[in-house]
Design a protein around this nucleic acid. Sequence first.
DNA 1: ACGGCAAAAATGAACGTTCATTCTTTTTTT
DNA 2: AAAAAAAGAATGAACGTTCATTTTTGCCGT
Lengths: 194, 194
Amino acid sequence: MAKLQKSIDKRNALVKATIELVNNNGFHATPMSKIAKMANVSPATIYLYFENKQDLVNQTYIDVKAEYTNYAFADFNPNMPIEEGFEMIWKRIADFKLKECEHAMFLAQCDNTPMIDEESRQEGIKHLQPLLDLWERGKKEGVIKPLSDYILYAYAINPLSFLMMTQKRGAFTLNKTHLEEAYQSAWSSIKMCK
Amino acid sequence: MAKLQKSIDKRNALVKATIELVNNNGFHATPMSKIAKMANVSPATIYLYFENKQDLVNQTYIDVKAEYTNYAFADFNPNMPIEEGFEMIWKRIADFKLKECEHAMFLAQCDNTPMIDEESRQEGIKHLQPLLDLWERGKKEGVIKPLSDYILYAYAINPLSFLMMTQKRGAFTLNKTHLEEAYQSAWSSIKMCK
DNA sequence: ACGGCAAAAATGAACGTTCATTCTTTTTTT
DNA sequence: AAAAAAAGAATGAACGTTCATTTTTGCCGT
């Protein structure tokens, strides 16, 4: 195997182990030694790929955030009609949160905790721009309520995080019907009433 | 001062310090020694009031959760009309999340992290029953959409957590108008359409 | 009202452990 | 065989918790 690929594999294994351990035990209870063990690597090797523990968790956050937004916008193009574009993005996000729920959970933990440096948090936010642009256009066309982006996000997207979390805790399971209901709630909370 | 009151004061100081330090630094970076210092107490004294660090954070969670729900339901009575009751609870919750945002932030961190024992988490959920009862009644009367409680919560209540968090990060500030818009979004996402 | 005393509460220092990180040596690659 | 990558053992600091003492409290007979 090529040298470069081996390096990439090792880095990925470390990121993967970080996600899994932080999800299950929390940041406070995931020592570098455990991360190393789960990635089949010596603790010292981590420091060839990352500066320190903080850097490891920051980079893991940015990696996962990029994966999330790539997934969300994969089939989207900025010229779609507003409602169609929103539905596509919403459903991709829902898909991601349910299929890659380990990753979504990790993001939820990072986003509600001071465990990520502010700089990395900002870096992560940037990738969401296409959705904000869509909303901007929607407001101009009179299709989307003229609300702050934060309020739109709070009502249209964020509920999915809560549902993902609840499902992960085993309290209930989202089926196709739930998801359609949730989408309707999301859309009706941001669309202009006629 | 009475002996009992002194004990209560000391316990409260410890809980308060825990909230503040965990909010600012995260659980992983708040040692018992710092909690003790902030509460003006010796580290050893903590162990007269709490079994260990885990017990301290569990009890802090339950305390704050109880305060939250007491606040939310303070003026509510179960015989109110559905919409009036919901508006009252919603606005009290919004009030709490904005005025006591340190406490709300602490809850958000606990709820997205494995830092609280499952048992204490369950304990905290119980207090929400009056809202679930109101929704139950609303569904029977055909005023509230017949959705799972989790979906109702996701769309009607949880967005407030996101807005509180965003505001706390300084990204934007919620004013009276925003709040009224948010309430309308919340209500319209759960009310039966006519 | 008060001095003295036993119990309770509180303390600071100490303990053993665990952790993030580094150092030295070994293994792998080119 | 030189250079790069990886390893395991070592290091020093920091942590949660406990221990031996000291301080405070509440109560008693006077």
